[in-house]
Design a protein around this nucleic acid. Structure first.
Length: 481
DNA sequence: TTTTGAGTTGTTCGA
DNA sequence: GTCGAACAACTCAAA
């Protein structure tokens, strides 16, 4: 009788789980093990909300396992040490896990491989970083050709989605487990409800399977950019923890694209959504092949930017007190809910980096501390894109104008009023730039600028010129170096 | 090796 | 109000 350990990391699910599937095929008994990693939990790049979401997901996974004759074993400590303790206690001979590709995960898994028979399976991305390479076998650094190749390299194995097993046979004696923290069940939108079931429901709802009404996917391309509209899939946090297999999500899109009865509109929108999932693969590939992006610019041109890094301005940005309503609404949404709309992420990132001239790493860290869906690769890629230091060859003078973005993507100010209640009574005419309100209007709106809501902490026009100069200076300095 | 075409998400200015 | 050009040249990928 052989016993395998299913070492769970970013795959908190039973459906389409290649590691679990392989463990069940290889052994008579399987021990589902999750190790709380002190190195990660104590990192300043992890926040309370994300940890709570993970615990909630672990509780759901435990319940799903108990319905299949098993249970989740929870340990805490240094993963190689804890894993080997469980191996010793149970006589398990093989370990299966979904391969993770971050620099930290690679080091950790190499350490484990030296101690025990560890089999790593696919699943954290749709295609692995080494599967989508240029003809000369070097990695891509530009998205569009990467995507083209991604499609060319798509194989039958990527199109398979494994069902959840009906049984997960446990050994007669399970090893000791820490108690799972009790997570209260709150009445929240599915986006904030952890677990496989919520993820499956959201996916079905988004693509219009098993639901009535018009699914968001049909208008994804038109509506995903508006922060006050539920136009996105909302699946990011579940994908972050593998409560939904990204391969299952991609296959849902591919199935729609290829089905003969699909309308052109559905096909086009499914393609746009799939393209976003491919961005996720792309940034995982970038972090894998260019680990220096973890704490440095992808492009060295910008290594000599003279950041201002003003602490008070940074605090104002974090607190949603910059005086720019769209920025403040977004930052408050992040801190209050653990999620921020993608369009808003771009706006606040551009503001921090290009208006305040604060190092993008400060923003990257704050996002990781507050985003439930915070993923090292995607978050880093997004911040470097906004800072202009990343893989996108776009010109550095592309600086978002917070008023224009606000008018374009929150025309009526609904999103602003939801998260910045002191502006609730400000008329539409002034909602994007309330400092332009005449005194009488301020009184009518019960909002004195500088008292009830801050004056803008920076003048956008001046800030823009300051940043253009700083970026130009860095490029010239690096050219001479 | 050289050439060619293209590059997520924008803003400003002036006609 | 709308539209096209300029922004600044560079790097990447593929033929």
């Amino acid at each position: 009788m052989t016993t395998a350990i299913w070492w769970i990391r970013r795959d908190l699910r039973l459906t389409d789980n290649q590691a679990l599937h392989a463990a069940l095929a290889a052994a008579d008994h399987v021990i589902p093990l999750f190790i709380l990693d002190d190195n990660i939990l104590e990192s300043e790049y992890v926040g309370d909300k994300q940890v709570a979401f993970m615990f909630s997901g672990l509780a759901k996974l435990d319940a799903d396992l108990q319905a299949r004759g098993s249970k989740l074993i929870l340990r805490r400590g240094d993963p190689p040490v804890e894993l080997m303790k469980v191996v010793a206690e149970t006589g398990a001979t093989v370990v299966f896990a979904e391969r993770a590709n971050s620099p930290y995960a690679k080091t950790r898994d190499n350490a484990v491989s030296a101690l025990v028979d560890l089999t790593l399976t696919a699943g954290v991305s749709i295609q692995a970083p080494w599967e989508v390479l240029k003809k000369d076998e070097t990695p891509y650094t530009v998205y569009t050709p990467y995507k083209k190749r991604w499609f060319a390299m798509l194989k039958t194995e990527h199109r398979m989605v494994l069902p959840a097993p009906e049984n997960v046979p446990a050994p007669n004696e399970m090893p000791m487990s820490l108690a799972l923290p009790v997570v209260p069940e709150l009445d929240l939108p599915l986006r904030y409800v952890a677990g496989e079931q919520a993820a499956q429901e959201m996916l079905n709802h988004f693509i219009g399977r098993k639901t009535s009404g018009v699914p968001a996917l049909v208008h994804y391309d038109d509506q995903r950019d508006f922060p006050n509209v539920d136009g996105t899939s909302s699946l990011s946090a579940h994908l972050r923890f593998g409560m939904l297999s990204v391969r299952q999500a991609a296959n849902a899109a591919l199935d729609l694209i290829q089905a003969p009865q699909t309308t052109k509109q559905q096909r086009d929108n499914a393609s746009v959504w799939l393209s976003e999932l491919i961005w996720r693969d792309f940034y995982m590939s970038i972090l894998y092949h260019f680990p220096h992006v973890n704490d440095g610019n992808f492009r060295a041109d910008y290594n000599k930017i003279d950041w201002r890094n003003d602490a008070a301005e940074y605090e104002a940005w974090c607190a949603g007190q910059t005086g720019y309503p769209i920025v403040d609404a977004a930052m408050r949404q992040l801190v209050q809910t653990g999620w921020m709309h993608n369009r808003a992420r771009m706006i606040v990132a551009s503001f921090l980096v290009k208006d305040l001239l604060i190092d993008w790493r400060w923003g990257e860290r704050f996002f990781m501390q507050h985003l439930i869906d915070g993923d090292p690769a995607a978050n880093n890629g997004g911040w470097q894109w906004a800072a202009g230091t990343g893989t996108d060859a776009a010109p550095y003078f592309r600086i978002f104008n917070p008023m224009s973005q606000s008018k374009k993507f929150d025309a009526n100010g609904d999103y602003i009023r939801q998260y910045v209640p002191e502006l609730a009574k400000v008329p539409k005419k002034y909602i994007h730039a309330p400092w332009e309100m005449p005194p009488l209007e301020q009184t009518l709106a019960s909002c004195q600028i500088g008292v009830d809501y801050p004056k803008p902490i920076v003048d956008h026009k001046l800030a823009r010129e300051r940043t253009l100069a700083a970026y130009k200076a860095s490029k010239e300095a690096m050219k001479q170096a």
